[in-house]
Design a protein around this nucleic acid. Structure first.
Lengths: 223, 223
DNA sequence: GACTATCATAAGGCATGCCTAAACATTGAG
DNA sequence: CTCAATGTTTAGGCATGCCTTATGATAGTC
């Protein structure tokens, strides 16, 4: 299978929208892992693996024994996917005459291979509907798209050039990091990835070696 | 990723339509492996692996050093996929206003997750167009669907005489089955049906007793 | 007929995404 | 506070689909 668009696989997307829909349905956040497992018909272990991955990538916050909630970033991605699903749902049911339930089934596959560009055209074609065939709201294109992609330094590949978005570290570490010239807004380049997940980065001319604990607390936005 | 519909994965479908398109484009059959490799941007080794798998399943005929050609079965599957692609192409370009080339790109993803049911409704919605946005013919639903009727051995009645169309089994089982003379194309007769759904079959003179697991993976075409 | 370029195949690897089994941690009910 | 139910993790496995490396087979040219 081929990656969709620089980020989320079909499976990952399914996990994200499962959490988003649980919240839509009024479940309290964080959403329990077992609920996700039930919805996706996979085991708890699988959910755990995937959610931890999504947490590392900044799409969700995972609190062991409590559950998952979406980050702003994850919410934006989920909205974007649900928008595509519901737009297809409207098209399939209203224009092609399928039942809402069947339309939703098919839309669930189409959503993962629909670029935003197509979603926008489709929305216009359908007269910018505000609800899907089953009554759920269709997120607007603006909501869905407008969140910059960020990721913790700890998951970046060597060669990445990015800007620091935020630094979230305990006092002692934060002070050190600040002193080294790492501040929100600063530009960095990831020179290398060590065997323990440690990162060698370049910051305005200087070179720093950061352990995983620090790398975890620094979020980047691609440039 | 989940299987599409009782048979072909997205990758397999891409290989099939690559062969079908090569023939459409006037290449002589069998189509060379290197051409497929070029089109799909994969290595020759990968093509070899996949084509041999498709051969074993009865979708293509593979002649070493000569190339691949589609069987009737494979051609029907390819037509069905190309039909879906081109119908989406027409929708995306004519109704949504995308360029034909871009529409084809997107359609190439949509085609793999579009049930025939949707293709039929879409065709009707579009006024049953006969050519895609780039001038290629849209196979008719009838062509595409007229895959010969096949059924798994596991549902046949005693007395049935049929040909094996495909064998889709885990490595270990497949090896056994092949060794017993069961290959796509072979003729068999179902001599008896056991109480657990097991089948007693005759294959060129010999007699075999197959459990339900194996019988499930063997598809037959009536003769 | 020998040779070279292309093709075939075997073997081993990697990533994704799922699984089971088994050991362990936490929570909340009583 | 104890304990059962639930959740977490680690470890090992499997299938798909792709890769590289390396060896063997073939075809068509000279």
């Amino acid at each position: 299978m081929v990656q969709h668009q620089a980020g989320t696989s079909e499976s990952e997307e399914m996990y994200l929208i499962t959490v988003a829909r649980a919240v839509e349905d009024g479940r309290s956040e964080p959403v329990s892992m077992s609920h996700v497992a039930t919805q996706l018909d996979v085991t708890g272990v699988s959910v755990n693996q995937m959610i931890r991955k999504l947490d590392a990538r900044g799409y969700v916050d995972y609190e062991p024994y409590r559950g998952v909630s979406l980050t702003d970033h994850g919410r934006a991605v989920a909205s974007s996917i649900l928008r595509r699903r519901r737009l297809w749902g409207v098209f399939l049911s209203e224009q092609l005459g399928m039942t809402p339930a069947r339309a939703d089934d098919v839309a669930c596959d189409l959503e993962h291979v629909t670029p935003d560009e197509v979603a926008d055209l489709l929305s216009e074609f359908l007269g910018d509907p505000s609800t899907g065939p089953q009554g759920r709201a269709i997120p607007s294109g603006a909501d869905a798209v407008s969140v910059p992609v960020t990721q913790p330094l700890s998951v970046t590949a060597a060669g990445t050039r990015a800007s620091i978005v935020s630094i979230d570290l305990p006092e002692a570490l934060a002070a050190f990091v600040t002193e080294q010239g790492l501040d929100p807004g600063a530009s960095i380049e990831v020179l290398g990835v060590g065997r323990h997940g440690d990162r060698l980065v370049a910051v305005d001319g200087a070179c720093l070696h950061l352990g995983t604990d620090i790398a975890d607390g620094i979020r980047l936005e691609a440039r």
